[in-house]
Write a protein that binds this DNA or RNA. Structure first.
Length: 103
DNA sequence: TGTATGACCCCAA
DNA sequence: GTTGGGGCCATAC
């Protein structure tokens, strides 16, 4: 029940990420008020339909890297979308300056 | 009911 | 700078 609320919060937060910016699973978890739910955020994203309008590609891990292995289709898709939005990669990582929310 | 797994994170060495 | 281990909690089997 409360997890339904969490899902909505997660969707709202992701939808509010500005174009050309990214954020991390941990940040999203914290903004929902549950600092330890970073893993749950990933689980939620995995369940999204492939035709979702949610900008899931703007969500990366705490290291500034894409959460998928580099040789996967999902990785390439995500990276391509980010680069289309003007986000540049440095050695496979996104610079901190591109993060939407920072503590 | 119990164990394993995952689009993660943090801290100590 | 890297590496390893613990923690987290919903799902799947």
């Amino acid at each position: 029940m409360s997890d339904l609320n969490i899902n909505e919060m997660i969707w709202q937060i992701i939808a509010s990420i500005p174009e050309g910016k990214v954020t991390t699973y941990g940040q999203i978890a914290r903004l929902t008020g549950y600092p330890n739910r970073a893993r749950y955020v990933g689980s939620t994203l995995k369940k999204l339909p492939k035709d979702t309008s949610l900008p899931w590609h703007r969500v990366i891990n705490g290291q500034g890297e894409i959460a998928f292995p580099p040789d996967t289709k999902a990785y390439k898709t995500q990276r391509y979308r980010l680069e289309e939005e003007g986000i540049l990669f440095r050695k496979g990582k996104v610079p901190l300056s591109e993060f939407g929310w920072q503590d």
